[in-house]
Each structure stands twice: as C-alpha cells, then as structure tokens.
Amino acid sequence: MEHLGERLSALVDGELGHAERDRALAHLASCETCRFEAEMLRRLKRRLHGLDGPEPSTDLMGRLSALKESSTGEPPLGPPAGPSGGHGPLGTHPSLGSSRPIGGGLPGTPHGGHPAAEPEPARGPVRRSATPLSLLRPPWGRTRYAVAGASVVALALGTAFVAGDEREGAPVVRPALEQYEVEHAVVSGQAPDLGPPEGDEGGGQRALDGQAPDDAATPR
C-alpha cells in the first residue's frame, strides 16, 4: 500500500483539494502508520504556534513610542494589537511588537515548557508596557543633562585646581632687591644706598640719629 508521503503535510496544512483530501482521509482510515504520522504533524504544528516571538528591548520600544508620539502627538501607546485567536503565523504581523503569537500553548502544557514561550491568554487587544516607558523617559532625559552639567563643572574645577598648584605654576624667582633699590633711588633722584652688605655692621655711614642730618660740612 502506498503511503501519503508529501501529501500528508499538505493535508495537515489544509492545502489539498476536496477530492485529494477525501482520498487522503480514506487512506488514513486504513493506514495506522500514516494516521500516526499525521497526528504527530498536527501536534508539531500546534506547538510551533504556541511558541512566543522574540521580546523587543525596552529601549527600542521607547524609541518607537517616541517616534509615534512626535509624529502624531498622541499619547504613547503600545503597538497595535493583532487579531486574537492564535491563527496568525510567526512573522506575518505588521510590526515586530505584534508578532507575538496569539493563542494558548499546547494542550496540557499551559506554560509552554519554555521561558520564552509563555502563552498569553487571547483575550482582546493587548496593550503593551508603553506607559511605564513613557513615564521613565523624561526623568532620564533630565538626569542625563544634570549628569553632563555636573561632569563639566567637575572637570573645569579639577583642571583649575591642578593648574593652581603652586608648584606647577610660574617658576620660582628671587627678586633682585639690591638692584631694585638702586633703580628706585636713581629714578627718585637720590643717592642709592651703597653701604656695606648686610651683616657688616662695623662699617658704612648708616646712622640712626633721630633727626635730619645737620649742615656740619661746609661747601668747597
């Protein structure tokens, strides 16, 4: 007896014509092997439908919501909900956010047995977590500016603090006081102090006489 082969998959997918379908069903009634294989194919198909799609990142969702908000001015909402019922195959929905399969998991396995394949009850349109994202976005924006400003101030103060180090500034100099005194005296129109160097207290004409010098000397 010839088994169904490739037609078995078409039967499960509902792609056979009426006549072909009747012949295939008649064969299944008499062929235990093909019946078992058809049942396995149906189970596999149901399990695939129960698998959840990849969850988009919160950042992507936030940006998508912001795009929508800026273009329409509407409050940020989740992606448009697709039809419920679990009939849409993976990848057939218009947006990534709506690609989550609708429908329960495999019979007897309500949680799907896979962390990413948790079934979602198909009860009307599903509103995604857009509201929490929109609440988070403005504070993050303000914080970002505050952090940036604080960083700039800290950088400027730190740079000035380092540049203000006494050891890092201009070179250490020793003002030439004796030379300055001579220069000052000459500009002032008076004789500079040409007395002995400090420490030689025995010589020179320095005097502390308490009054202006008298006119003891006579002109030549």
């Binding site: 103060l157 740079t159 000035a160 540049a163 203000g164 180090d165 006494e166």
Partner: peptide, 10 residues
C-alpha cells in the same frame, strides 16, 4: 584660592 589661581593661569 587655588582654583581661582588655576583659572587665572589658564
């Protein structure tokens, strides 16, 4: 004072 000196030097 050191920060102010640093700004002046810069």
């Amino acid at each position: 004072a050191r920060v102010w000196r640093g700004f002046e030097r810069l």
